[in-house]
Design a protein around this nucleic acid. Structure first.
Lengths: 143, 143
DNA sequence: TTATAGTATGACAATCAATTTCAATTGAGT
DNA sequence: ACTCAATTGAAATTGATTGTCATACTATAA
């Protein structure tokens, strides 16, 4: 699956007449090798470890390309930092965000998805994406 | 209901030993007289119209107090601007955000709320708040 | 009402994430 | 290898938000 994401990204790039570079490959590798949720800064640190000459701006720019190409998605948890998560084709997942330790648990629920669709239909609204986040205290922190 | 929000805010303030001032009253009036979703800048403009000497920082600070007091809630739609919405006691509503015209439609759905609770329980997660937003094209923009 | 102590204010500086600028470099097709 | 547009890193810039600080104000006590 990592193979296919690389491919997806490279196809997107060449389709747009954009170039494949050393730096972008490093950023891509770090991203694919990472946890699902990654702040730009976290990724920048990993990239630095591999190649200290790569600049912050490049990481920002490359992450935007990931989002455009569809292999990543921007997420905002309201703490002022943009994060990126991997996008698995067609799959949607939502988040349980612990407000104490910051951990993020994912979940999926088909019934909710369907209800969302119904609601949107009622309003004549055409859904493109959605965001569902539950904030609270995770099991570990509650002990 | 506006009466009670004013009261709620003033009780919060005096309970914390904070003071009621001309400026805060203006900001509060503008907020209560406004649409449900308001960026800080929009509110600042309205405040300015009433009293041009009130500064940006005061509006920011006052909105934070609104959130603390429970009469308002911060919302983030991912466009880099913090917005505030009115909080009606106990009520939760979710959003249909049009990515074309920026309009926001609210909705409520009890079944979804219940499912969220069930999911959280499965993970031993204690929900404090949640956020559900559907992004797409609104009926008006689709025509 | 006046004094008093602590809070609030506005102007401006500072911060933080994110973006842009720009001169120098590099990638890909010819 | 050559050309040209795309890319890069460093630094400057933006835009939102927060902090600083001297002055002004509020609320309570006296």
């Amino acid at each position: 699956m990592k193979r296919s994401k690389k491919k997806q990204f490279h196809e997107f790039m060449s389709g747009k007449g954009l170039k494949s570079t050393r730096q972008r490959d490093v950023v891509l590798d770090c991203f694919l090798a990472s946890d699902r949720h990654m702040s730009t800064e976290e990724l920048y640190m990993k990239v630095r470890a591999k190649n200290p000459t790569i600049g912050y701006a490049t990481v920002y720019r490359t992450l935007k390309l990931f989002a455009e190409s569809g292999i990543a998605r921007e997420i905002h948890f309201g703490d002022g930092q943009t994060r990126y998560e991997h996008v698995a084709e067609g799959e949607h997942h939502d988040h349980l965000v612990c407000t104490r330790c910051g951990s993020v648990q994912e979940f999926e629920n088909e019934t909710i998805e369907r209800l969302q669709q119904e609601i949107a239909d009622q309003f004549g609204f055409q859904v493109e994406t959605h965001k569902l986040e539950l904030y609270g205290i995770c099991a570990k922190c509650r002990q």
